[in-house]
Amino acid sequence: MGFGSDLKCSHEALLKLQDWELRLLETVKKFMAMRIKSDKEYASTLQNLCSQVDKESASQLDYVSNVSKSWLLIVQQTEQLSRIMKTHAEDLNAGPLHRLTVMIKDKQQIKKSYIGVHQQIEAEMFRVTKTELEKLKCSYRQLIKEVNSAKEKYKEAVSKGLNSQTWIQAIRRVASLHMCLPRF
């Protein structure tokens, strides 16, 4: 049965593909989680830095000059960058990372379902090809024995020269048994 063995190779290849995809998705999820953590930490560090600079610079900026204006602009843009980084990290966590987690769970469930269905199909195939085939072979052997027995009775009847009614019964018995034999 080449057909079954070809399907077995396909099944194994499909399982390898599913495992590879799940490992890749887990790697992407891990990367995204680390990126979110890193971005949040970076945003927090920038915010702390800006807070410290604001405290120290507040007393020193009595005189307004181009340098002081530039310095204030740098601090403000750094605070803005901090807020943007924090927002992007939260958006990444709530959106793509959440959907990726759901996708991984779905793929794991699909794999589990696929394996279950495959096992059911294999069990059914085993039942049909082994169990039922053995039953048919056994039935076939029994019918062959009955045919041979009927032929022997027929030969005995012919050799003894019994009446035509006995011959007709023996011929009918052989014919009916021959009709019952399954064709392979």
Rank of each mutant, 00 (worst) to 15 (best):
F3E: 15
S5L: 13
L7V: 02
C9V: 13
S10M: 08
A13D: 15
L14K: 15
K16I: 05
W20T: 14
E21A: 06
L22H: 01
R23S: 13
V28N: 00
F31R: 11
F31V: 05
M34T: 12
R35L: 01
S38F: 01
S38I: 06
K40R: 10
E41M: 15
Y42N: 12
S44A: 01
N48Y: 13
E56S: 10
E56I: 07
L61D: 11
N66W: 13
K69V: 08
W71C: 04
W71P: 02
L72R: 10
T87Q: 12
H88G: 12
A89N: 04
E90I: 02
P96T: 09
P96A: 09
H98W: 01
R99D: 11
V102I: 14
D106W: 06
D106V: 05
K107G: 02
I110G: 07
S113M: 03
Y114V: 00
I115V: 13
Q120S: 11
Q120H: 09
E122P: 00
F126G: 11
L133K: 10
S139E: 15
Q142G: 12
Q142F: 14
K145C: 03
V147P: 00
N148R: 08
S149H: 06
A150F: 00
E152I: 08
Y154N: 06
Y154F: 09
K155M: 09
E156S: 07
L162C: 15
T166C: 05
W167R: 10
Q169K: 11
V174K: 04
H178D: 15
L181V: 02
R183I: 09
F184M: 09
